[in-house]
């Protein structure tokens, strides 16, 4: 079977570290919000803050990486094949129809992925990031800049973004099972190598026994 190396080492590290941090942030975040009791409010709040700083650090690296490697282009949205993809997920996948999109190194995300990840990157993340920092530095800003909206408004935006992230996480985790085998995508994200169906690859690939 043909394979293509699509996820580089940093990318894989970034993905899994981010996944762990996001899960931790969701768990602790909703405890801070008051949705349940798990670790105790104090520990939840302090873990949430630490995890947030780690994630911010990671994001800074990732942004740098995306721009220096040109990988940011992977997220340029395209309408090409969007409907084909939708049709595949809604119908084709149940009848074993061929996947309308072929992964290549230059184009490793299908058009729906592109759109979804772009949405996460330009909407949800900044929303979380900005509202989270305001939340954290509310006191410092409170006196000068932020006498107006108050902590409640900041918390509202932060919580809304968290719900969006939660919904994304669930959908993303499920869609990760839609490769040619249920674990194919997950494996690719671990090893970096994506198996290709028997069709010939356009990109230089390495054969493998």
């Amino acid at each position: 079977m043909a394979r293509v190396y699509i996820f580089k080492r940093f990318e894989r590290f970034w993905h899994w570290a981010q996944a762990a941090l996001v899960v931790a942030l969701l768990l602790t975040g909703f405890e801070v919000h008051g949705s349940y009791r798990l670790l105790g409010w104090e520990r939840a709040a302090s873990l949430h803050t630490s995890a947030a700083w780690l994630l911010i650090g990671l994001w800074l690296f990732a942004i740098f990486w995306h721009f220096t490697t040109g990988e940011w282009k992977q997220y340029i949205p395209t309408t090409e094949k969007v409907f084909a993809m939708l049709k595949y997920y809604l119908v084709g996948i149940f009848s074993d129809a061929p996947h309308p999109f072929r992964v290549t190194r230059l184009s490793k995300h299908n058009p729906l992925q592109r759109l979804a990840y772009l949405l996460v990157k330009v909407c949800i993340n900044p929303l979380i990031w900005v509202s989270g920092l305001l939340y954290l530095y509310y006191n410092e800003l409170g006196a000068t800049v932020f006498a107006g909206p108050g902590l409640g408004a900041i918390a509202l935006v932060h919580t809304a973004a968290a719900f969006l992230m939660l919904a994304f996480l669930i959908a993303h985790a499920y869609l990760a099972t839609t490769g040619h085998t249920p674990l194919a995508h997950v494996k690719a994200m671990i090893t970096g190598w994506e198996d290709l169906d028997d069709e010939p690859a356009h990109e230089p690939t390495r054969s493998h026994t």
Binding site: V32, L151, A155, L156, T159
Partner: peptide, 20 residues
Amino acid sequence: YIPGRGSDHATWLDGIGWAL
């Protein structure tokens, strides 16, 4: 607004969020 205090929550947001 006291983080963690239920009565401060926007019930509509929590409702929509969990529904989503």
